[in-house]
Design a protein around this nucleic acid. Structure first.
Length: 501
RNA sequence: GGCCCCAUCGUCUAGUCAGGCCUAGGACACCAGGUUUUCAUCCUGGCGACAGGGGUUCAAAUCCCCUUGGGGUCACCA
């Protein structure tokens, strides 16, 4: 066998919110990249924002990834040889790196107050100058700085950005160059001693032997700061790759304004996880340009970060819904039924125990809608009519209009009911009843819609839906007749509420 | 506004790195027809794009430049 690949990648979310779908895609691509090359995929929690980091968010992120089946080889819960995997637990290393940098003169103490910084920014904005730290404290001799710090004066540690320019090769974008003059003397360590993201990310990626840093494009402008830091620390610079952003329908970074952003929202809405995975792949990557429906095994076998598109992609819920429907249609009846069950319970249609005791009936109900639904949650909505009161079914406007129009003088339907009633005495056998009904219709030379439209409205209250004999079978003889009688009466009556005011 | 990134159908994309095989392919959506008791599925067909302008070349969606447009980022957030 080949020797183990040293490739190591990571997904490093901050536990300050639910797992974003964009983050999920970043994790997925990193994971696939590692799997394809026999590398290691690790999870690191970037919890350096003490204010906003919450344990429950960390839990939610881990759950989200687990739901998708993205497994990490090392992480906060499973540990690993490069732990710990929460940044706050690695502060000893960060402090050491900060001291080293300060001693080398690559970083310096800054005593500027928030007030001065705010005023500075305001003045820069007023003069339309580029905002940024003016380097006032750069000139303070280290001895003096140390004295002031020892005296208890609040200070941050800033990185001393050198002259010149910084260049790196982005796996997705190619050469990227920044003039160092454009890079701020950014804060590495806060007044309270807590390190900031751009600082710890370098320390930890290096300590964890990360070979490829693949993340979202919003980090592109952070990269020069980090590259400079790698150089200052004498660390080997990893390869970088910045995935294009996932955008909302407004063309801007996906936000709650234009749709759900959290992975769990889609899980809760009943999207099959395979569909989520597949759709995430399609945002920025294509298997062969032709195949739309494929699984993670195809991603793993073919993923190459250099093939990811550079431009952002709008999150198209229509296509997502279509894809989701594809997965549901291809899945087995039992599986779909099981996935839909929680939504049926949530709607209150059936209890968990009824789902057990009426399993056959439930499966039959799911079978009637399986090819019509796009999400598991949609099933619960579509079978709602089965649980409505038989004498007060809500009629959809179009269904009622069609029913009234086709009903005519009502004689055909009345004749059918007279014929049907004794037929139902022995129960509803859908196929047989369907054939018998068609024969009955043929004898009379009647058009199908004349019978089926009023019946459909009476039975389901809707303009479209499953085969009516399947519906009758689900309803059973009594409820079928009760609905037909009540429905025909309503459709025969003057159209008082035909069109809602 | 500065800097950085980006630019193929309405949307996701193939093709761009290695220029000719592209009168630009696929998918979603949309439209029209077929199937069906209706809706959905399924089948057939249609609509629909290389942002604009210069260059380089025998040849450019593909390479270069400019313009325009879009996005990201400018925190003691990550």
């Amino acid at each position: 066998m080949t020797s183990p690949s040293p490739l190591r990648v990571r997904f490093a979310p901050s536990p300050t919110g639910k797992l974003h779908v964009g983050g999920a895609r970043t994790a997925l691509f990193n994971w696939a990249f590692a799997r394809r090359h026999g590398g290691t995929f690790l999870l690191r929690i970037e919890d350096t924002d003490r204010e906003r980091s919450k344990p429950e968010y960390e839990r939610a992120i881990l759950e989200g990834l687990s739901w998708l089946g993205i497994q990490w080889d090392e992480g906060p819960d499973v540990g690993g040889p490069y732990g710990p995997y929460r940044q706050m637990e690695r502060s000893a290393q960060h402090v050491a790196a900060a001291r080293e940098l300060e001693a080398k003169g690559a970083a310096y103490r800054c005593f500027c107050t928030t007030e001065r910084l705010d005023a500075l920014r305001e003045a820069q904005a007023a003069k339309r100058e580029k905002p940024g730290y003016d380097g006032l404290c750069r000139a303070i001799p280290r001895a003096e700085a140390e004295r002031r710090v020892a005296a208890g004066e609040p200070a941050v540690l800033r990185f001393r950005v050198p002259e010149g320019h910084t260049q790196f090769v982005d796996l997705i974008r190619g050469d990227v160059t920044f003039q160092n003059a454009e890079v701020d003397d950014w804060v590495m360590v806060r007044t309270d001693g807590a390190p900031t993201y751009n600082f710890v990310v370098v320390c930890d990626d290096s300590a964890m032997a990360i070979t490829h840093v693949l993340r979202g494009e919003e980090h592109l402008t952070n990269t020069p700061k980090q590259v400079l830091l790698y150089h200052a620390l004498g660390y080997q610079v990893p390869r970088f790759g910045h995935f294009p952003l996932m955008l909302g329908t407004d063309g801007k970074k996906l936000s709650k304004r234009t749709g759900d952003t959290a992975l769990e929202d889609y899980r809760d809405k009943g999207f099959p996880k395979e569909a989520v995975l597949n759709f995430l792949c399609l945002q920025g990557w294509a298997l062969d340009g032709k195949t739309e429906v494929f699984g993670v095994e195809d991603l793993v076998a073919n993923f190459d970060p250099t093939q990811v598109s550079k431009a952002g992609s709008i999150f198209d819920i229509q296509k997502f819904l279509w894809l989701s429907g594809e997965y549901i249609r291809r899945d087995s009846l039992e599986s779909v039924a099981d996935h839909c069950a929680p939504h049926v319970v949530a709607k209150g249609w059936l209890s968990a125990s009824e789902l057990q005791s009426k399993r056959e009936w439930y499966l039959a109900a799911v079978a009637t809608e399986k090819e019509r639904i796009h999400t598991y949650a949609e099933l619960a909505e579509r079978i709602a009519y089965l649980f409505a009161p038989d004498d007060a079914l809500v009629f959809d406007d179009k269904a009622e209009a069609n029913g009234r129009k086709q009903l005519g003088d009502g004689n055909l339907v009345k004749g059918y009911v007279a014929w049907l009633t004794p037929q139902l005495a022995k129960g509803v056998e859908a196929a047989a009843l369907r054939d018998a009904t068609k024969a009955w219709m043929a004898e009379r030379g009647a058009k199908f819609p004349a019978l089926f439209q009023p019946l459909r409205c009476a039975l389901t209250g809707e303009a479209g839906g499953p085969d009516l004999f399947d519906v009758m079978a689900l309803l059973g003889p009594e409820r079928t007749l009760a609905r037909i009688e009540s429905g025909i009466r309503r459709l025969s009556a003057p159209a008082t509420t035909g069109t809602t005011p």
